[in-house]
Design a protein around this nucleic acid. Structure first.
Length: 481
RNA sequence: GGCCCGUUGGUCAAGAGGUUAAGACACGGCCCUUUCACGGCUGAGACACGAGUUCGAUUCUCGUACGGGUCACCA
């Protein structure tokens, strides 16, 4: 059975690239009826951030990617938190030392630095294997005296070839590889080492991660071989870019999942969008539910080249999700936005919500769209000129004057969209003008905006009789100047 | 710099030796219409370059250019 794992380091932030990796790991497992496991990679004590694991749980939950095993839900194949198993890694490293596949290294930071400098500033140099030639006695002596040490992997000669599901076969000459550190002097394993151990222990069948690990994969294979363990299936993913040259990163303040949620995006839309960033389905379709994704996902659709994160397309997709949303759900989602944008208490917020629902990309679009309700903005009479409606300022002034008594005559208890519309059309017909020639000026007078979430009669209904008459009068006044 | 990887419209991308080189976002136009939006129709816009293989290359090979990754006691 397929087992994949999501192995984030808890830095308190889940960026889009991370989430996409998790998504593909989830989909690879679930599309084959496998398990998706969460492992927290906290071997770097310096970068640990309090509460960061909660961000991870929360994000996976919102994104609807439940993990089958993990620190919070347990499972049969721990470890789910690396720092809790510090000593086990050492045990495995020592096993390699015994086998002659790894060795103690007592070199100081200073010596390593000097190695690099000796060779000029441009040349990058590998570790010179100084400690490989230490005698058994020297090692014993150093250990007895508590000289700080690391354990290094001994890279053998030859070439290493590995297969990646996305990139195919890749061969590297082992001379390119360094005797990498397995156990750090603080006793913690390095990421690369802990990864191999844990993936093996957890029976991970598919190792899915960013393409930046492509170049360290040969070292992984050598490690698996040294232990005599099965090599997992590798799936390397191209990066998610912010633009042509830069990856999406938190350092640049690029959008994280949390940021996008705060900006008014829906979790489902975000997940749907990132599924398509670097993967394409076998069918010509873009909107997918998670269940549909699970059904149709195939590693074959993964792309090799980096993809630029396009917030505009995400916004479009978010709009599609909003349109499809159940109204009550939509309303409770945007109610806070509406309430902070509209402080008047006589406004039917549900009506506003229906008008706004088909025309927003994110919930944050609402505020601007409805701000005219609280306060009629200052506007230029040029707004009354509309080419398609064939309106002019003079005509608008005249038509507003004509419609005013009609509106005044409508009783408060008949003040609704249907009545308003039919009364206005009645008047329009008697004047023998086009609908737009009356409705456009009215819409303009009521909103003071070039665009509004609904038309003249809906606006009048929303604003109520008193305010409607008031705004029409203001329009007349403005146009009279 | 060494090594590894990549390159189809502005963006996401399908395709794969012979196609009018899909589709989506964004953009332009038209229709619908009570503005905008929605919806419908439509337009413009791409195979990085050079050799080779082939009857035929966007597709295969090799170079070049450009881009990315990596070369940590970070993950």
């Amino acid at each position: 059975m397929i087992r994949t794992r999501f192995a984030p380091s808890p830095t308190g932030y889940m960026h889009i690239g991370n989430l996409r990796t998790a998504l593909y790991e989830f989909l690879i497992a679930k599309s084959q009826g496998g398990s998706f496991i969460l492992r927290i990679e906290d071997t770097d004590q310096e970068r640990f951030v309090e509460g960061a694991t909660d961000v991870i749980y929360k994000t996976l939950e919102m994104a609807k990617m439940p993990h089958d095993e993990g620190p919070d839900v347990g499972g049969d194949y721990g470890p789910y938190i690396q720092s809790e198993r510090k000593n086990d890694y050492l045990k495995y490293a020592l096993e390699l030392v015994d086998k002659g596949e790894a060795y103690y290294c007592f070199c100081t930071k200073e010596r390593l630095d000097s190695l690099k400098n000796e060779n000029g500033n441009e040349t990058i140099v590998k570790y010179d294997r100084h400690c490989l030639s230490l005698s058994k006695e020297e090692i014993e002596e150093n250990l007895k005296n508590n000289v700080p040490y690391v354990i290094r992997q001994k890279i053998k000669d030859g070439k290493t070839t590995f297969h990646d599901e996305v990139y195919g076969d890749i061969t590297v000459d082992n001379s390119e590889l360094e005797d990498q550190i397995l156990i750090k002097s603080d006793g913690y394993p390095t990421y690369n080492f802990a990864n191999v151990i844990d993936d093996h222990l957890m029976n991970i069948t598919h190792v899915v991660r960013g393409a930046e690990y492509l170049s360290s994969t040969p070292k992984y294979n050598l490690l698996y071989e040294a232990f005599g363990w099965d090599i997992p299936v590798y799936v390397h993913l191209p990066a998610v870019m912010k633009d042509k040259h830069n990856k999406l990163s938190k350092r640049n303040g690029d959008a994280s999942f949390q940021d996008l949620i705060e900006k008014g995006y829906l979790p489902d839309a975000i997940v749907n969008y990132i599924a398509l960033l670097g993967w394409s389905p076998s069918v010509n379709q873009e909107i997918f539910t998670m269940d549909e994704l699970i059904k149709i996902f195939d590693i074959k659709g993964l792309s090799k080249s980096p993809a630029i994160f396009d917030i505009e397309k995400l916004t479009w997709m978010n709009g599609e999700y909003i349109k499809k949303m159940d109204f009550d759900e939509f309303f409770s989602w945007v109610e806070p936005e509406l309430k902070s944008a509209i402080t008047r208490t006589d406004i039917d917020l549900k009506k506003v919500a229906t008008y706004v629902k088909t025309r927003i990309g994110t919930s944050k679009d609402i505020a601007n769209m409805v701000s005219f309700i609280d306060n009629l903005p200052e506007y230029s009479t040029e707004l009354y000129i509309h080419k398609k409606m064939k309106t002019t300022e003079e005509m608008s002034l005249n038509n507003l004057k004509e419609i005013l008594p009609v509106l005044e005559s409508i009783e408060e208890n008949n003040w609704n969209n249907e009545t308003l519309y039919s009364k206005m059309v009645e008047k329009i017909q008697s004047m023998e003008i086009k609908n737009g020639q009356m409705l456009w000026p009215v819409r303009t007078a009521l909103s003071g905006e070039p665009t509004s979430p609904c038309g003249a009669s809906e606006l009048a209904e929303l604003l109520g009789k008193a305010d409607t008459l008031n705004r029409i009068n203001k329009g007349i006044e403005l146009l009279s100047k």
